[in-house]
Design a protein around this nucleic acid. Sequence first.
DNA 1: ACCTGAACACCGTTCAAGT
DNA 2: ACCTGAACACCGTTCAAGT
Lengths: 221, 221
Amino acid sequence: MANRAQRRTDGLSKEVIVQAAAAILDEGGEAALTFRALTARLSTGYGAIYHHVANKSDLLAAATDAVIARVMGDAVAGGEPREALRTVSLGLFDAIDAHPWVGAQLSREPWRPALLEVYERIGGLLEALQVPEQALFDAAGALVNYVLGVAGQNAANARLLAADEGDRDAFLGAVAARWAALDPDEYPFVHRAATQLREHDDREQFLAGVDIFLAGIASLR
Amino acid sequence: MANRAQRRTDGLSKEVIVQAAAAILDEGGEAALTFRALTARLSTGYGAIYHHVANKSDLLAAATDAVIARVMGDAVAGGEPREALRTVSLGLFDAIDAHPWVGAQLSREPWRPALLEVYERIGGLLEALQVPEQALFDAAGALVNYVLGVAGQNAANARLLAADEGDRDAFLGAVAARWAALDPDEYPFVHRAATQLREHDDREQFLAGVDIFLAGIASLR
DNA sequence: ACCTGAACACCGTTCAAGT
DNA sequence: ACCTGAACACCGTTCAAGT
């Protein structure tokens, strides 16, 4: 019992546990979040954690909700609705980029309470854009799905990059080289896209997609 | 050694293993795919499987590639490009709906070889729609991301439904009830959307999103 | 009420040994 | 070359026992 941890004097709470889990996820990715790592970090036992949290799934969901809630709180949406939609979208994109595990979790568990805020904000802004009532639901659903979908894919890339030793440029360069090496007769589009893949900016491409979306929505009026 | 399995007489192959894995995934979901279940189904040992497959991740990726390749092979894209784009999108949506684990895998591992076919097909069709070269890459990326994103979310729902005992209507009814119960002053949009949520058709909403997208892309011309 | 930590029932993966 | 299956190093989760 050499390095036996001291007993905590301050009480544990769900919030403290969720924050510790988020920190572990940020530092080491999803694989790093184990109850063993969590008990070590919090100097406590398994039962203490299970007293505040139902299981690992509950813990991941709570940590995700916390991140989304923070983003939606920070992104004060003022000004012109089109610009506000871009701001909110980009806020979600950046948050998921910074915390890739959030992207994975959201694509695993939609209908989370945290997404309510997202739907409400985006739905309200689309309404301000004069989208007709009957198309509003489809438009909001499509936009939220696009944002979460792209952000999730981006997070997957970020995770891949963290796992592989190489940096982003090396990785994209390798994919681009594979694309460029394809038979131009069989894969004309992908073959040409190789160059753009190497040079593209994820954030800009994401925003370009949002703009295409907003242009399409404008045609619903 | 009562129920000792017979030794296989036919040789194992990666294809046989991948098909068995896909069957297990279809029947019992992602949690059901274990090497123990796989050895039992194939009447073999762990080493035999590891001889043909690098690890579980490789196995999941190969099974996903097989499903996507089949969809892209089946969806013969003839006719008007706009209609062909809807057909391809819907084919992917339906395949991921039928095999929810494919959706989860694709959002975890983009840049899979199987997605090359998807990019090529969608990129080519967008080109036929006269999208200018410089916007083509963004448009294709956005559309593929939308399709995979929505399909993935849908797959997550399908998995949730499979886990919970209730049927789809009961689940959506419960979410809708929760939305309807929200304070209309704080959540005006979500509160009103509750009704549509209960009545909406996932497939139709997906297609409505594709149409919004195509309308936006048309504005790029 | 809240916490501890040994124990249980699983995993993916390895590897010496067989054919 | 291909396959077998005991063994290893992990997991999440439980629960009798402590304070």
